[in-house]
């Protein structure tokens, strides 16, 4: 049972966290402009690196904040966990 460092709460047990997939696949700015193939890639295709992967996690049974984590898929070690920076809405 790993400890994962929530940027807000500090190290907590992994069972408190929820994995939310790759952090590197943003919702397209204009889905209507994408062809079927490009859209299908957004919906279904995700990076699967051997090594550091940038992922979204949420501290689901804690502060309920989502954050970005860099995790080495070979060792499961978390290399970094950082707060998602606020952006201006579209």
């Amino acid at each position: 049972m790993q400890l994962i460092t929530c940027p807000w709460c500090g190290p907590r047990e992994e069972t408190e966290f929820h994995y939310g997939g790759a952090a590197t696949v943003p919702y397209p700015a204009d889905p209507a402009a994408l062809g079927d193939d490009a859209w299908a890639r957004f919906v279904f295709v995700r990076p699967n690196p051997k090594g550091p992967a940038t992922e979204q996690w949420s501290h689901a049974a804690g502060c309920r904040r989502w954050f970005t984590a860099v995790r080495d898929t070979r060792t499961h070690r978390f290399l970094a966990t950082v707060d998602i920076q606020p952006e201006v809405p579209r």
Partner: peptide, 16 residues
């Protein structure tokens, strides 16, 4: 609720 939170925290952070 999780799905909505994910949207406002990850896709559109800053949404009021």
């Amino acid at each position: 609720l999780d799905r909505m939170e994910e949207w406002i925290q990850t896709e559109w952070p800053g949404l009021r």
